[in-house]
């Protein structure tokens, strides 16, 4: 059986990109409110990528990053994963909490978890409005470690059913400064058909 993800056409990919655009737009607005700063985002990128090559879209699998991970469950299931470079996490904490130490205590970690929670929550609510799907998110989990190792754990749900991941990836900006981060939306392979069905797009 050929992986259906590998047969996505340009129109279907552009639909996914638009979903990512709406979700990330809401997420950026929520983050702006939280940070009381202007936050923008770029147009999301949609990747259909094999598990063997997936670390390349993030760049530097060995780099230490902050990862916040949530599962979404309901009519459509998948994973949401916020990856922040350490400097970006420090920058966000500085604005939010006046952080200027080194190393993240439990307090900083829970603040970062809350950022992930807010981003994911607003992304999801836009997504569920759009698809009319009933979806809820798990509590977030945080880990600070090698990017590849975190991705390993996040991709477990994809790996159970597929050798290919559908990744909708957004970057955020604060003013002219890139908040060096990725926000990944990874629908479970079994949910891709449900997404297209909810949107009235043909998908074999």
């Amino acid at each position: 059986m050929v992986d259906p993800l590998l047969r996505l056409n340009d129109f279907q990919l552009s639909v996914l990109k638009e979903i990512g655009n709406i979700g990330a737009g809401h997420a950026a607005t929520s983050l702006s409110v939280l940070m009381q700063r202007e936050i923008d985002m770029n147009v999301p990128r949609v990747h259909v990528v094999s598990l063997q090559e997936i670390d390349e879209i993030m760049g530097g699998a060995e780099q230490v990053v902050v990862g916040v991970f949530l599962r979404m469950e309901g009519d459509i299931s998948g994973s949401m994963f916020l990856v922040l470079k350490l400097e970006s996490a420090e920058m966000l904490l500085k604005v939010l909490t006046g952080f200027e130490g080194n190393g993240f205590t439990e307090f900083e970690q829970s603040a970062l978890m809350e950022i992930g929670n807010i981003l994911a929550g607003s992304y999801l609510s836009a997504f569920s409005d759009f698809t009319k799907a009933n979806i809820h998110a798990s509590v977030p989990a945080i880990s600070i470690d090698m990017a590849g190792a975190l991705l390993n754990a996040v991709l477990m749900h994809v790996g159970m059913y597929s050798d290919t991941a559908l990744v909708i990836d957004t970057e955020f900006w604060q003013g002219n400064e890139l908040v060096d981060s990725h926000f990944f939306f990874l629908p479970d392979p079994g949910s891709v058909a449900a997404i297209f069905k909810a949107l009235g797009v043909d998908f074999a």
């Binding site: 991970f69 599962r71 989990a141 880990s143 975190l150 749900h157």
Partner: peptide, 15 residues
Amino acid sequence: AQMFSTLNQNDLLRV
């Protein structure tokens, strides 16, 4: 390893 220790609702995370 178990990368995300706070999540335990799912057996998958004990993978």
